[in-house]
Design a protein around this nucleic acid. Structure first.
Lengths: 222, 222
DNA sequence: CTCAACTAACTTGTATGGTAGTATAGCAGC
DNA sequence: GCTGCTATACTACCATACAAGTTAGTTGAG
């Protein structure tokens, strides 16, 4: 871990990261009005970097810029979440199949390690981080880092939903068990089983969605 | 076609669109140095909107902004093209399967119409536009507009390759025949056949890539 | 009381000046 | 001829000022 000086990222980029996190974690609630000027004074920077961060966020569909009117945290649109799920399933199925073919012993051990880490996680945020690490690791094993970046972008819409409830609707053990099946399928180099396990896992969010939409209606659209 | 006044998009957004087109069509060659100031005078606007357009392009991996150094049109990275292909295949396979299940008679007729339009297309740009229309139509039939937006973004890396050669390596008849198979599979509501046809079609670019990389080495990296 | 017009306080969009970091060409010294 | 410093001409980045559009509230006429 030789993290050399590494020129600090531009203010605009830092802001983008910070705001993105806040939106995904629902600290900035859907529908909230942002304002270049307001954010600028809060972070004691000029409006320009804030504006640039907004542009990045708009391109990720996390905020909506309405010219001369204001910039708003996008409400969670049911259809968008379902579409994100669809895309994510398609990509992750293909990734998992490749991982099942390519996985060697050390790779499998790394997967099992992330599984144990997730079991030991305490708290919602930590659990979700471990969840993400697991999926990311599979992509790395398949040698599809770029594909993971697409998934990472798309799944922001899904994560917003997951962060809504501190105690997830789906119990942790259930999700960990699903992860276990994926890992074992990959370890067995069984691509079909891996595909099936991923599809089952990806269907899980469908169970949470209606309940959360009923619980937080002001955050959803439609 | 009632194109109401429709507030003109911001200069930054217009520039983004224009530059994106120019890059994908290889009018701006890979490796070219851009410059906020230079583009600004060329379009007679200030540097700020140019800067914002650059940020958008950077997020799409079409340019690389090197702080205090310059902004460059990204070279075509072989691995990126292959990854884009991988993601696109994963998504379009899933989309085609859904389309095969959902397609009704008028939808099938629209597909056949795009096929005829492609046969009548003259010139490379027109042909590629028809190609894109075909894939887009399938996504619309499946009701996966959002998924198509992801494909559209990812496939920019592939289109850059396709625009390199005015006479595509793969003859038009061959590609049209492949499209025909996809359409007929969807018309027959045969999801498995549709999947197979899409995978065959997506493999086509793999044949062009090595030849083009050899022909235009200065545009590639690695 | 009703409603239209004006005003004031917002919003994002654009232009411009200045700053700091980077690359390069030229010159001095060896 | 080669190396190392220095001036200079770039670059992206940030701050600030101004412009133009939107919205809400207030005021005044009917």
């Amino acid at each position: 871990m030789k993290s050399i000086p590494q020129r600090a990222a531009s203010i605009g980029a830092q802001l983008h990261q910070a705001l993105r996190d806040a939106i995904v974690r629902a600290e900035l609630k859907p529908g909230t009005a942002l304002s270049e000027a307001e954010i600028a004074v809060r972070y004691t920077v000029s409006r320009q970097p804030v504006r640039e961060a907004f542009i990045r966020l708009a391109q990720e569909d996390l905020v909506e810029i309405r010219p001369q009117r204001g910039t708003y945290v996008k409400r969670i649109v049911m259809a968008d979440v379902l579409d994100a799920r669809f895309v994510r399933e398609a990509i992750e199925v293909a990734v998992a199949r490749e991982a099942a073919l390519k996985a060697d012993e050390p790779a499998i051990e790394r997967l099992r390690a992330t599984l144990r880490a997730q079991g030991a996680a305490s708290g919602n945020a930590e659990f979700l981080a471990a969840d993400e690490a697991m999926h990311h690791e599979i992509a790395l094993i398949a040698g599809r880092e770029a594909a993971w970046r697409v998934v990472d972008q798309v799944k922001a819409q899904m994560d917003r939903v997951r962060y809504l409830s501190y105690t997830n609707v789906s119990p942790a053990e259930r999700l960990i068990a699903q992860h276990g099946e994926i890992v074992e399928a990959i370890a067995a180099h069984d691509a079909d089983a891996a595909e099936a396990a991923v599809r089952t896992h990806m269907a899980e969010i469908l169970l949470q969605l209606p309940q959360l939409a009923a619980q937080y209606p002001e955050m959803f659209e439609f």
